[in-house]
């Protein structure tokens, strides 16, 4: 797994990434993972709690807000059933 940009988040990120990859390959791709409320949800919350602080400290949160605003229309294109 790749590292986090914030060293202090590495441990919880690693645990989340491992959980996600297992869920993705064993459940999601087999049509058995259809909700956000899965076994990795708690780990994701912990990871985000750590990461949000790091993004704010580095001023990246504002850049991300702008990028999200810029790319909104992509969701309309790619979130459709094809």
């Amino acid at each position: 797994m790749s590292a986090s940009l914030a060293q202090e988040c590495n441990e919880v990120k690693e645990r989340y990434d491992t959980c996600f990859l297992k869920w993705y390959s064993e459940k999601y791709l087999r049509g058995n993972g259809k909700t956000d409320d899965n076994e990795c949800a708690g780990l994701f919350k912990d990871y985000q709690k750590c990461l949000k602080v790091a993004l704010k400290d580095r001023g990246i949160d504002k850049l991300l807000e702008e990028a999200r605003e810029d790319t909104k229309e992509n969701d309309a294109i790619h979130m459709q059933r094809k």
Binding site: L5, Y16, D36
Partner: peptide
């Protein structure tokens, strides 16, 4: 050259099953 990959957001669309992920 890639130092870090962080997941910022992740959700599944309940109707289409599409998994949307934001990363930095």
């Amino acid at each position: 050259h890639v130092i870090a990959v962080d997941t910022l957001n992740r959700r599944i669309d309940p109707t289409t099953g599409i998994l949307r992920t934001e990363r930095l």
